[in-house]
Amino acid sequence: MIDTIYIEEAVREHPRTQAVVARFPKARQIICEHYGAIFNRSQQSFRLQKQNPALILAHKSGNRVLPAPADYGIGGQDNYYFSHLLNCLYDCRYCFLQGMFRSANYIMFVNYEDFYKDIAATQSALDAPGWYFSGYDCDSLAMEPVTNFVADTLDWFATQPNANLELRTKSTQIRSLLNREALPNVVVACSLSPDPIARALEHNAPTVEKRVAALAKVANAGWQVGLRFDPLIWSDDYTSVYSDFFEQVFSQIPNAKIHSVSTGSFRLPPDFHQKMSKLYPRDTLLSGSLHRGERWVGYPQDREQALLEFARERVVAAIGSERFFPCQHETMVG
């Protein structure tokens, strides 16, 4: 799975570095001064790297906990995100990471404890329990066998009843969740699309059937779960495609365990869309009829509203409106 591991000099001896390296005994190890020399350089091809990404083990300094975009919330007032990992195992054609990063290599920041320290500091300044989202720049669970992030982070969140965590994923790597008792301050959220859309756009990700089955297991084990229908993708037969899909999902996930459902339509910042169109000049989603606004490229308003309204009706019919959190245009989707 990983053929090349770059290791920042500063984390060479870190126990997590040692553990990752031990997991890939045949991988080539290359020591570097700073991850930026590999991750941020120019003239990289995201598309070539995606064929066989390298793993970079690094130390995260600077801002580790950042305010989440304005409408990213699922009921809380204070929302933050943090990224122990940059980039994703999957290759979803709509994912903004392709437009945001120059490199498809994975960066794993091994200093988890510094993230926890910063979350604790952030939380101490708040009056109400804050929400901390981990799956913004990566998939929270997909690389769990390598990162051990969920197991470690849940141990910490178990001691922080005033801080809520969202793990967002398309993965079926749920062992670390099933191996322990469910935590009341954690939501395991799964990004889902109808099967024909997932097959066309969510390359390398588990099938929707498998994702729903895994999420049902997690819910049945006592965890609160989230459903993320974001991005909603337009096709001329979207009503029938999404009708079947919503029925499939809501019939399998126990209603009482659904913490929240969010929706959002396909949208990208213009510069990300331009970069992604160059990466995939023959992609039908990126080449299709999109409205180019000042801040966002997305579906023309009539299509966007039709999709969002259709989804809203179905979601509200299934779970009511209290647990429904539509995302508008302030966030991006991976």
Binding site: D3, I38, R41, Q49, Q51, N52, P53, A54
Partner: peptide, 11 residues
């Protein structure tokens, strides 16, 4: 001006 790292994405 800083070492360069050729990017190997083949086995």
């Amino acid at each position: 001006h800083g070492d360069l790292y050729p990017a190997l994405h083949i086995r």
